[in-house]
Amino acid sequence: MKLGWGPSFQEAWGSHASGGVEPARIGADYGVEYVLYSARGDMRATIPGRLRMAIRKGESVRPVVGDWVAFEPQSQEGTTLIQAVLPRRTQLVRKAAGRADEEQVVAANVDVVFLVSALTRDLNPRRLERYLAVAWDSGAQPVVILTKADLCEDVEAARERIAALAPDVPLHIVSSVTGEGVDALWRYIGGTRTVALIGSSGVGKSTLINRVLGTARQEVGEMREDDKGRHTTTHRELFVLPQGGLVIDTPGMRELGMMENEEGVRTAFVDIEELAATCRFNDCHHENEPGCAVQAATRDGRLAPERLENFRKLQQEATRLERQRDAQAQARQKQETKKTTRAFNDFQKKRGR
């Protein structure tokens, strides 16, 4: 099935097969309304009150672009209802902007994540390190895409600078204007694979998608004086490519907070993890301890001090969020225990009458 249906979803569908519903994939998310792609064609859909309540209680997840869902084939006034969300294979998660412990799923069931940054003055290795940590934690394969090669005076210097962040992660230099490097991306796109693009506003995600699609499906803003494109994507959308494969465009991310993805941090900074394994002390904090291999690497130039600083920052962020969630979970458990005790005492009083 060209929408990305596979064995895991077929197995999960077993519990819905006799419920009078059909499968569809979320193609666009407009907040209160969705677009579904299904064997019946494209259709609008909303979430019924029952599912909204289950989402609030934590008994279900909110559908996002890339999700497979069960929907009612009978629609009313052109809009159908989403009745259930199938289990996800992978999911891209970030901390919701301004929320201490609330996660936001950016896209679901993604096979490859294109981490897009522009070869302009806005090129930021520290931001790419954060993207890499989130991508590794998602379960999808990260690929770094550096766009706007036609605006860069020293492409090779930029390539070496970024490649050093993650030597084992594929890196591609492209220009959506000239077409340079775009054909090489097809090795990740095609078949039933789903590719999601994430990156800051104005780095050229929508322009790249238009180039891959071969048509101007995504609106693109004109270039500003600071070499940034104007941000135009306002919602997440899944595009089905005529040659096969699916691509998800996302709005530019001003904030990409961590959500307890310590494993993702360790994978994104595998060079530091390998150095740490040779420190004299197992509990080394890589600060002033004797025999610290990490600090030795910063002194002799093998490890950039700013990379170590970003590693510490992301680790602390993930640890802090985990502690906050543990504390909140304990508080909720305490409240539930009080309610249960109160209900039991009330029951005992009634029996004693």
Rank of each mutant, 00 (worst) to 15 (best):
1 M>Q: 12
2 K>G: 15
3 L>M: 13
5 W>Q: 08
14 G>C: 02
15 S>I: 08
15 S>T: 12
17 A>P: 00
20 G>I: 13
21 V>G: 00
27 G>S: 14
31 G>M: 11
36 L>T: 05
38 S>V: 09
39 A>C: 05
40 R>Q: 15
40 R>H: 13
41 G>E: 02
41 G>R: 06
48 P>A: 11
53 M>G: 03
56 R>Q: 12
57 K>L: 13
58 G>C: 03
59 E>M: 05
62 R>H: 10
66 G>S: 09
68 W>I: 08
69 V>E: 09
70 A>N: 03
86 L>T: 04
96 A>P: 05
99 R>K: 14
99 R>I: 00
105 V>F: 04
110 V>H: 02
112 V>Q: 02
112 V>C: 12
113 V>G: 00
116 V>H: 02
119 L>G: 06
121 R>M: 00
127 R>L: 13
129 E>K: 09
130 R>A: 05
131 Y>R: 04
139 G>I: 04
139 G>F: 08
143 V>G: 05
143 V>F: 11
147 T>A: 11
153 E>G: 06
154 D>A: 12
159 R>Q: 14
163 A>C: 04
164 A>E: 12
165 L>H: 05
167 P>T: 12
167 P>E: 15
175 S>D: 11
177 V>S: 08
179 G>T: 07
180 E>C: 00
182 V>R: 01
182 V>Q: 01
184 A>M: 04
187 R>G: 08
191 G>N: 07
199 G>H: 08
200 S>C: 06
201 S>W: 06
201 S>P: 10
205 K>Y: 13
207 T>G: 13
211 R>G: 05
212 V>W: 03
216 A>R: 14
218 Q>C: 13
227 D>R: 14
231 H>V: 00
231 H>D: 08
237 E>K: 12
238 L>G: 02
239 F>C: 01
240 V>L: 15
241 L>C: 13
244 G>T: 02
246 L>H: 10
248 I>H: 06
255 E>H: 12
255 E>T: 10
256 L>W: 02
260 E>C: 14
261 N>F: 05
265 V>R: 03
268 A>V: 06
270 V>Y: 07
272 I>D: 02
273 E>M: 13
273 E>V: 10
275 L>W: 03
278 T>C: 05
280 R>C: 12
288 N>S: 12
289 E>L: 11
292 C>K: 06
295 Q>R: 15
295 Q>H: 04
296 A>M: 04
297 A>M: 07
301 G>S: 01
303 L>F: 01
304 A>Q: 09
311 F>T: 01
316 Q>W: 01
319 T>C: 00
325 R>E: 06
327 A>R: 14
330 Q>V: 11
331 A>G: 00
338 K>L: 10
338 K>F: 01
344 F>W: 09
345 N>Q: 11
348 Q>A: 13
351 R>E: 14
351 R>G: 00
351 R>Q: 15
353 R>M: 10
